[in-house]
Nucleic acid binder design. Structure first.
Lengths: 145, 145
DNA sequence: AGTCTACTTTACGTAAACGTAAGCCTGCTC
DNA sequence: GAGCAGGCTTACGTTTACGTAAAGTAGACT
Protein backbone atom coordinates (compact mmCIF):
# COMPACT_ATOMS: atom_id res chain seq x y z
CA UNK A 1 0.00 0.00 0.00
CA UNK A 2 1.62 3.25 -1.18
CA UNK A 3 1.95 5.94 1.45
CA UNK A 4 0.42 9.28 0.52
CA UNK A 5 2.90 11.94 -0.60
CA UNK A 6 3.64 14.91 1.63
CA UNK A 7 1.00 17.21 0.25
CA UNK A 8 -1.95 19.13 1.63
CA UNK A 9 -3.78 15.82 1.61
CA UNK A 10 -0.97 14.28 3.63
CA UNK A 11 -1.23 17.00 6.22
CA UNK A 12 -4.87 16.14 6.39
CA UNK A 13 -4.01 12.52 6.94
CA UNK A 14 -1.56 13.54 9.63
CA UNK A 15 -4.26 15.32 11.56
CA UNK A 16 -6.55 12.34 11.50
CA UNK A 17 -7.08 10.32 14.61
CA UNK A 18 -8.19 6.76 15.03
CA UNK A 19 -10.02 4.72 17.60
CA UNK A 20 -8.56 1.44 18.69
CA UNK A 21 -11.22 -0.40 16.71
CA UNK A 22 -10.41 1.45 13.51
CA UNK A 23 -6.74 0.62 13.77
CA UNK A 24 -7.55 -2.96 14.63
CA UNK A 25 -9.70 -3.42 11.54
CA UNK A 26 -7.22 -1.66 9.32
CA UNK A 27 -4.30 -3.87 10.30
CA UNK A 28 -6.28 -7.01 11.01
CA UNK A 29 -5.39 -7.35 14.64
CA UNK A 30 -7.59 -7.28 17.74
CA UNK A 31 -7.91 -4.30 20.08
CA UNK A 32 -6.43 -6.56 22.72
CA UNK A 33 -3.25 -6.86 20.67
CA UNK A 34 -2.98 -3.09 20.34
CA UNK A 35 -3.44 -2.60 24.06
CA UNK A 36 -0.85 -5.26 24.67
CA UNK A 37 1.66 -3.47 22.47
CA UNK A 38 1.06 -0.33 24.48
CA UNK A 39 1.65 -2.23 27.69
CA UNK A 40 4.93 -3.44 26.21
CA UNK A 41 6.02 0.10 25.50
CA UNK A 42 5.56 0.01 21.73
CA UNK A 43 2.69 2.50 21.62
CA UNK A 44 1.75 5.47 23.72
CA UNK A 45 -1.54 6.94 22.50
CA UNK A 46 -3.16 10.11 23.71
CA UNK A 47 -6.04 9.76 26.17
CA UNK A 48 -9.32 11.54 26.07
CA UNK A 49 -10.81 10.66 29.40
CA UNK A 50 -10.33 6.92 29.51
CA UNK A 51 -10.47 6.43 25.79
CA UNK A 52 -7.36 6.00 23.70
CA UNK A 53 -6.85 8.31 20.73
CA UNK A 54 -4.36 7.22 18.10
CA UNK A 55 -2.63 9.65 15.78
CA UNK A 56 -0.82 8.94 12.58
CA UNK A 57 2.43 8.64 14.45
CA UNK A 58 0.97 5.79 16.49
CA UNK A 59 -0.34 4.16 13.37
CA UNK A 60 3.14 4.21 11.84
CA UNK A 61 4.55 2.66 14.97
CA UNK A 62 1.98 -0.09 14.81
CA UNK A 63 2.82 -0.72 11.19
CA UNK A 64 6.50 -0.91 12.06
CA UNK A 65 5.70 -3.33 14.84
CA UNK A 66 3.72 -5.66 12.62
CA UNK A 67 6.44 -5.54 10.01
CA UNK A 68 8.97 -6.54 12.61
CA UNK A 69 6.74 -9.37 13.73
CA UNK A 70 6.43 -10.72 10.21
CA UNK A 71 10.21 -10.85 10.17
CA UNK A 72 10.31 -12.83 13.36
CA UNK A 73 11.60 -10.13 15.67
CA UNK A 74 10.48 -10.20 19.27
CA UNK A 75 8.51 -7.31 20.67
CA UNK A 76 11.56 -6.43 22.77
CA UNK A 77 13.73 -6.13 19.68
CA UNK A 78 11.10 -4.09 17.91
CA UNK A 79 10.85 -1.79 20.89
CA UNK A 80 14.57 -1.27 20.66
CA UNK A 81 14.30 -0.19 17.02
CA UNK A 82 11.38 2.08 17.78
CA UNK A 83 13.27 3.79 20.53
CA UNK A 84 16.24 4.14 18.23
CA UNK A 85 13.94 5.83 15.81
CA UNK A 86 12.45 8.19 18.36
CA UNK A 87 15.58 9.11 20.26
CA UNK A 88 18.15 9.05 17.51
CA UNK A 89 19.22 12.70 17.63
CA UNK A 90 19.37 13.26 21.36
CA UNK A 91 22.25 11.96 23.35
CA UNK A 92 25.96 12.52 23.71
CA UNK A 93 28.59 11.36 21.28
CA UNK A 94 29.19 8.07 23.04
CA UNK A 95 25.49 7.23 22.90
CA UNK A 96 25.26 8.18 19.26
CA UNK A 97 28.22 6.01 18.35
CA UNK A 98 26.75 3.13 20.28
CA UNK A 99 23.53 3.65 18.39
CA UNK A 100 25.39 3.40 15.08
CA UNK A 101 26.84 0.12 16.29
CA UNK A 102 23.41 -1.22 17.12
CA UNK A 103 22.23 -0.12 13.69
CA UNK A 104 25.05 -2.11 12.10
CA UNK A 105 24.00 -5.10 14.11
CA UNK A 106 20.36 -4.84 13.03
CA UNK A 107 21.49 -4.39 9.46
CA UNK A 108 23.55 -7.55 9.73
CA UNK A 109 20.50 -9.43 10.97
CA UNK A 110 18.53 -8.25 7.96
CA UNK A 111 21.31 -9.34 5.64
CA UNK A 112 21.24 -12.80 7.18
CA UNK A 113 17.51 -12.82 6.61
CA UNK A 114 18.03 -11.99 2.97
CA UNK A 115 20.40 -14.92 2.61
CA UNK A 116 17.97 -17.22 4.38
CA UNK A 117 15.22 -16.14 2.05
CA UNK A 118 17.37 -16.80 -1.00
CA UNK A 119 18.26 -20.23 0.29
CA UNK A 120 14.64 -21.07 1.00
CA UNK A 121 13.57 -19.83 -2.40
CA UNK A 122 16.08 -22.20 -3.92
CA UNK A 123 14.64 -25.08 -1.94
CA UNK A 124 11.17 -24.17 -3.12
CA UNK A 125 12.44 -24.02 -6.70
CA UNK A 126 13.80 -27.50 -6.21
CA UNK A 127 10.54 -28.88 -4.86
CA UNK A 128 8.62 -27.22 -7.66
CA UNK A 129 10.88 -28.71 -10.29
CA UNK A 130 10.38 -32.17 -8.85
CA UNK A 131 6.63 -31.59 -8.70
CA UNK A 132 6.54 -30.61 -12.34
CA UNK A 133 8.65 -33.59 -13.29
CA UNK A 134 6.20 -35.88 -11.59
CA UNK A 135 3.27 -34.22 -13.32
CA UNK A 136 4.99 -34.59 -16.67
CA UNK A 137 5.72 -38.24 -16.07
CA UNK A 138 2.12 -38.80 -15.04
CA UNK A 139 0.90 -37.31 -18.30
CA UNK A 140 3.41 -39.40 -20.25
CA UNK A 141 2.04 -42.49 -18.54
CA UNK A 142 -1.45 -41.47 -19.53
CA UNK A 143 -0.38 -40.95 -23.12
CA UNK A 144 1.26 -44.38 -23.43
CA UNK A 145 -1.67 -46.33 -22.00
CA UNK B 1 14.27 -43.19 -5.35
CA UNK B 2 17.72 -43.26 -6.96
CA UNK B 3 20.40 -41.99 -4.61
CA UNK B 4 22.46 -39.12 -5.98
CA UNK B 5 25.62 -40.19 -7.85
CA UNK B 6 27.97 -37.67 -6.23
CA UNK B 7 31.71 -37.78 -6.00
CA UNK B 8 33.82 -39.91 -3.70
CA UNK B 9 34.27 -36.95 -1.41
CA UNK B 10 30.56 -36.29 -1.32
CA UNK B 11 29.85 -39.94 -0.61
CA UNK B 12 32.25 -39.65 2.27
CA UNK B 13 30.34 -36.72 3.65
CA UNK B 14 27.11 -38.55 3.10
CA UNK B 15 28.22 -41.55 5.07
CA UNK B 16 29.17 -39.52 8.10
CA UNK B 17 26.95 -39.78 11.10
CA UNK B 18 26.56 -37.45 14.04
CA UNK B 19 25.59 -37.77 17.64
CA UNK B 20 23.04 -35.41 19.05
CA UNK B 21 25.76 -33.55 20.90
CA UNK B 22 27.82 -33.02 17.76
CA UNK B 23 24.87 -31.56 15.90
CA UNK B 24 23.98 -29.42 18.89
CA UNK B 25 27.44 -27.90 19.08
CA UNK B 26 27.65 -27.42 15.34
CA UNK B 27 24.41 -25.47 15.12
CA UNK B 28 24.55 -23.90 18.56
CA UNK B 29 21.38 -25.41 19.91
CA UNK B 30 20.85 -27.76 22.84
CA UNK B 31 20.21 -31.50 22.52
CA UNK B 32 16.85 -30.78 24.09
CA UNK B 33 15.96 -28.58 21.14
CA UNK B 34 16.90 -31.30 18.67
CA UNK B 35 14.82 -33.89 20.50
CA UNK B 36 11.95 -31.45 20.58
CA UNK B 37 12.14 -30.98 16.82
CA UNK B 38 11.98 -34.74 16.43
CA UNK B 39 8.93 -34.88 18.66
CA UNK B 40 7.33 -32.23 16.44
CA UNK B 41 7.93 -34.34 13.37
CA UNK B 42 10.78 -32.30 11.93
CA UNK B 43 13.45 -34.93 12.36
CA UNK B 44 13.45 -38.71 12.35
CA UNK B 45 16.92 -40.04 13.13
CA UNK B 46 18.02 -43.65 13.00
CA UNK B 47 18.29 -45.48 16.30
CA UNK B 48 21.10 -47.69 17.44
CA UNK B 49 19.67 -49.23 20.55
CA UNK B 50 18.31 -46.27 22.39
CA UNK B 51 20.75 -43.78 20.96
CA UNK B 52 19.93 -41.47 18.09
CA UNK B 53 22.13 -41.51 15.03
CA UNK B 54 21.92 -38.55 12.70
CA UNK B 55 22.88 -38.74 9.06
CA UNK B 56 23.61 -35.93 6.69
CA UNK B 57 20.00 -35.89 5.61
CA UNK B 58 18.94 -35.15 9.17
CA UNK B 59 21.56 -32.46 9.44
CA UNK B 60 20.17 -30.74 6.37
CA UNK B 61 16.70 -30.90 7.81
CA UNK B 62 17.91 -29.31 11.00
CA UNK B 63 19.62 -26.58 9.02
CA UNK B 64 16.41 -25.95 7.11
CA UNK B 65 14.50 -25.79 10.36
CA UNK B 66 16.81 -23.24 11.91
CA UNK B 67 16.69 -21.17 8.76
CA UNK B 68 12.92 -21.17 8.91
CA UNK B 69 13.02 -20.13 12.53
CA UNK B 70 15.29 -17.20 11.79
CA UNK B 71 12.66 -16.08 9.32
CA UNK B 72 9.93 -16.26 11.92
CA UNK B 73 8.14 -19.35 10.68
CA UNK B 74 6.49 -21.57 13.25
CA UNK B 75 7.63 -25.15 13.59
CA UNK B 76 4.30 -26.22 12.10
CA UNK B 77 4.94 -24.16 8.97
CA UNK B 78 8.47 -25.47 8.70
CA UNK B 79 7.21 -29.01 9.02
CA UNK B 80 4.88 -28.33 6.13
CA UNK B 81 7.78 -27.23 3.94
CA UNK B 82 9.87 -30.21 4.97
CA UNK B 83 7.12 -32.61 4.09
CA UNK B 84 6.68 -30.83 0.81
CA UNK B 85 10.35 -31.40 0.23
CA UNK B 86 10.24 -35.08 1.12
CA UNK B 87 7.01 -36.07 -0.58
CA UNK B 88 7.07 -33.83 -3.60
CA UNK B 89 7.18 -36.54 -6.26
CA UNK B 90 4.69 -39.03 -4.88
CA UNK B 91 1.02 -38.35 -5.08
CA UNK B 92 -1.66 -38.06 -7.69
CA UNK B 93 -2.14 -35.15 -10.01
CA UNK B 94 -4.56 -33.37 -7.73
CA UNK B 95 -2.11 -33.54 -4.84
CA UNK B 96 0.74 -32.33 -6.99
CA UNK B 97 -1.25 -29.36 -8.21
CA UNK B 98 -2.26 -28.51 -4.68
CA UNK B 99 1.38 -28.69 -3.72
CA UNK B 100 2.27 -26.21 -6.45
CA UNK B 101 -0.37 -23.91 -5.01
CA UNK B 102 1.13 -24.18 -1.55
CA UNK B 103 4.52 -23.46 -3.04
CA UNK B 104 3.16 -20.28 -4.59
CA UNK B 105 1.79 -19.29 -1.24
CA UNK B 106 5.10 -19.83 0.53
CA UNK B 107 6.84 -17.91 -2.22
CA UNK B 108 4.44 -15.04 -1.70
CA UNK B 109 5.26 -15.03 1.99
CA UNK B 110 8.95 -14.80 1.18
CA UNK B 111 8.31 -11.94 -1.21
CA UNK B 112 6.45 -10.10 1.51
CA UNK B 113 9.42 -10.67 3.75
CA UNK B 114 11.73 -9.18 1.17
CA UNK B 115 9.57 -6.07 1.03
CA UNK B 116 9.49 -5.86 4.81
CA UNK B 117 13.25 -6.07 4.92
CA UNK B 118 13.63 -3.31 2.36
CA UNK B 119 11.27 -1.10 4.30
CA UNK B 120 13.09 -1.75 7.55
CA UNK B 121 16.45 -1.08 5.92
CA UNK B 122 15.10 2.27 4.81
CA UNK B 123 14.05 3.08 8.34
CA UNK B 124 17.48 2.14 9.58
CA UNK B 125 19.05 4.34 6.92
CA UNK B 126 16.89 7.16 8.16
CA UNK B 127 17.88 6.68 11.77
CA UNK B 128 21.54 6.46 10.79
CA UNK B 129 21.36 9.69 8.81
CA UNK B 130 19.85 11.49 11.77
CA UNK B 131 22.50 10.01 14.05
CA UNK B 132 25.27 11.25 11.79
CA UNK B 133 23.67 14.66 11.58
CA UNK B 134 23.64 14.91 15.33
CA UNK B 135 27.26 13.83 15.53
CA UNK B 136 28.23 16.44 12.96
CA UNK B 137 26.38 19.17 14.78
CA UNK B 138 28.06 18.12 18.02
CA UNK B 139 31.48 18.48 16.45
CA UNK B 140 30.53 21.86 14.97
CA UNK B 141 29.53 22.97 18.45
CA UNK B 142 32.89 21.87 19.74
CA UNK B 143 34.70 23.72 16.97
CA UNK B 144 32.89 27.00 17.65
CA UNK B 145 33.50 27.05 21.37
C1' DA C 1 35.27 -52.37 39.97
C1' DG C 2 34.56 -47.64 39.95
C1' DT C 3 34.06 -43.36 37.69
C1' DC C 4 33.43 -40.32 33.82
C1' DT C 5 30.97 -38.71 29.90
C1' DA C 6 27.40 -38.63 26.95
C1' DC C 7 23.35 -40.41 25.89
C1' DT C 8 18.27 -41.61 27.29
C1' DT C 9 13.19 -40.81 29.21
C1' DT C 10 9.79 -38.42 31.99
C1' DA C 11 7.96 -34.53 33.73
C1' DC C 12 7.30 -30.15 35.51
C1' DG C 13 8.52 -25.05 34.71
C1' DT C 14 8.67 -20.79 31.96
C1' DA C 15 8.71 -16.66 28.81
C1' DA C 16 6.37 -14.50 24.99
C1' DA C 17 2.29 -13.07 22.84
C1' DC C 18 -1.68 -12.77 22.94
C1' DG C 19 -7.16 -14.92 23.70
C1' DT C 20 -11.14 -14.81 26.39
C1' DA C 21 -14.38 -13.68 29.77
C1' DA C 22 -16.48 -10.68 33.36
C1' DG C 23 -18.06 -6.43 34.74
C1' DC C 24 -18.33 -1.46 34.20
C1' DC C 25 -18.89 3.20 31.72
C1' DT C 26 -20.50 6.19 27.91
C1' DG C 27 -22.62 8.04 24.03
C1' DC C 28 -26.15 7.28 20.55
C1' DT C 29 -30.68 6.02 18.79
C1' DC C 30 -35.26 4.28 18.77
C1' DG D 1 -35.17 5.36 29.14
C1' DA D 2 -33.87 0.95 27.33
C1' DG D 3 -30.93 -1.10 24.61
C1' DC D 4 -26.86 -1.49 21.95
C1' DA D 5 -22.13 -0.70 20.16
C1' DG D 6 -17.75 0.22 21.39
C1' DG D 7 -14.50 1.53 24.73
C1' DC D 8 -12.21 0.42 29.42
C1' DT D 9 -9.81 -2.58 33.31
C1' DT D 10 -8.66 -6.81 35.60
C1' DA D 11 -7.48 -11.27 35.52
C1' DC D 12 -7.06 -15.87 34.38
C1' DG D 13 -6.23 -19.20 30.27
C1' DT D 14 -3.63 -20.92 26.22
C1' DT D 15 -0.16 -22.02 22.69
C1' DT D 16 4.56 -22.28 21.20
C1' DA D 17 9.15 -23.47 21.96
C1' DC D 18 11.87 -24.80 24.50
C1' DG D 19 14.66 -24.93 29.80
C1' DT D 20 15.70 -27.60 33.67
C1' DA D 21 15.96 -31.19 36.86
C1' DA D 22 15.73 -36.10 38.22
C1' DA D 23 16.87 -40.67 37.49
C1' DG D 24 18.48 -44.28 34.66
C1' DT D 25 21.74 -46.66 30.98
C1' DA D 26 25.87 -47.75 28.12
C1' DG D 27 30.46 -47.49 26.63
C1' DA D 28 35.38 -45.89 27.62
C1' DC D 29 39.17 -45.10 30.66
C1' DT D 30 42.16 -45.96 35.23
Amino acid sequence: MPEPPASAAARDTDRRTYTIGELARRYEVTPRTIRFYEQEGLLDPERRGQTRIYHDKDRVRLKLTLRGKRLGFSLAEIREVIHLYDHAPDGDERQLRRMLDILDEKRAALTRQLQDIQALQNELDDVEARCRDSLASLSRQRASS
